[in-house]
Design a protein around this nucleic acid. Structure first.
Lengths: 135, 135, 135, 135
DNA sequence: GTGGTCTAGACCACA
DNA sequence: GTGGTCTAGACCACA
């Protein structure tokens, strides 16, 4: 696991986001053990406390479970939970803001949707390349 | 001018955004005088330093001009400037993130499109109501 | 504000409890400013981070609100919130456990209730003494 | 023997409590052999060290006796010992805290009394059901 | 001044 | 090994 940190957002929240997307992409499944606080701290070149904060966040959101002295685990159903939550804020908050922006900037939805198809096409190609490389 | 502040972003940037949108909506035109730092601070129940920062930010972006001893004014062409800038970050940054989210959450572009039309319809209705009330 | 810390529970949770009870007793009312993280840290002879954690907890519970650069404030209705939550856990969890204990130890409820009246009497006396001393 | 563990308290102490209550309820009598460390560890899906700690704790309290190469046994008079100890901490510590809570939350002792009778009634019913099932 | 985040590092109880 | 809490102290953006 490698990450490049961004200055705009706080590090531990970046870790949270990163892990959530990791789960969404199916890289970690329910009941799977995730790296220990210390290990991940070394891996990300970050202080253990910072990783700890990220794990606390994930636990509060019900995405991760901890067993003292054992480790942290992905909660069963974590991916659905994340997807549901994100869907809600996406529909309830991001989209309205987006639409507001679009109408203020006179951008037509058709333009955007064209962009989406280009995006997904590009993504699929990248995926194939990655898969090829792993071979 | 009334605003509700959000904890996630810094207050002065929220003011900047709010004013930009005000301009985009045509509420303030070029060369128009905007409230003095003190007045706006009182109105928004905010520290004058905070308003000052917002005005500085707007000045740096070329949206507001400062005339010593007179006040702050909307720069001519401000709306176009904002629109251009926002278009860029919209296309370069917001859309890619949006698309990523959509593909992670299995949201189809059609759903979004439908949402947009509902949004614009609702907005037009609200606008009419608002306009009526002002009469 | 002075506190003596107990080794059985973690310090920041002790601070949380202490403050909740402070609020329940009416010492802090809604919208009142509470000490800054640093000040309280000095007062309690504790690291600022520890106070910070306590304040975070209180914020998550909706008991405290923060304004960046300004300070922390008691949320309006905080006392009711605390009382409601505690009532719930009291009735739902503490009492059942208590009753279980009592029946396992063959303690009759009448014994306990006698104890309660002695307790409240003693408390009122203490209160009077304290009030007298302040005179 | 099945247990659901709680995060708030340490696992081995939860086992201690659970076993004490088992004894109080008369399920284990004096000189009765209790499960081996390994067996119980398997049964509770817990590290053997954890069970070992629990047994050590019970031994220190004089509730369990260890016979080398034979196993662990309930000490004669264990139930009385537990009952006596619990009575002390109940009266000396739990009750005062309870009363404090009650007065802070404006809960009247009568409410609690009513709750107790409901509790014992419900419990007796459950007991009958359980006894019936075992037949 | 005030909140907020982070590092470096220690120490503890537990598994 | 693993989580969890804490200290000492720094640094930043903001009010």
């Amino acid at each position: 696991m490698t990450m490049e940190f961004n200055d705009k957002q706080t590090i531990y929240l970046q870790i949270v986001d990163y892990m959530e997307e990791h789960i969404l992409e199916g890289a970690w499944k329910g009941d799977e053990k995730i790296p220990s606080v210390r290990d991940l701290a070394v891996e990300l070149q970050v202080n253990p406390n910072t990783v700890m904060r990220a794990y606390e966040q994930l636990q509060q959101r019900g995405i991760v479970q901890n067993r003292r002295g054992v480790g942290h685990f992905i909660a069963p159903g974590a991916a659905d939970l994340i997807r549901k939550k994100r869907r809600e804020t996406f529909i309830g908050q991001e989209l309205p803001r987006l639409f507001r922006q679009m109408s203020l900037m006179n951008i037509r939805p058709e333009e955007v949707m064209t962009g989406y198809h280009q995006f997904t096409d590009a993504k699929n190609k990248t995926k194939n390349i990655e898969t090829d490389e792993k071979k």
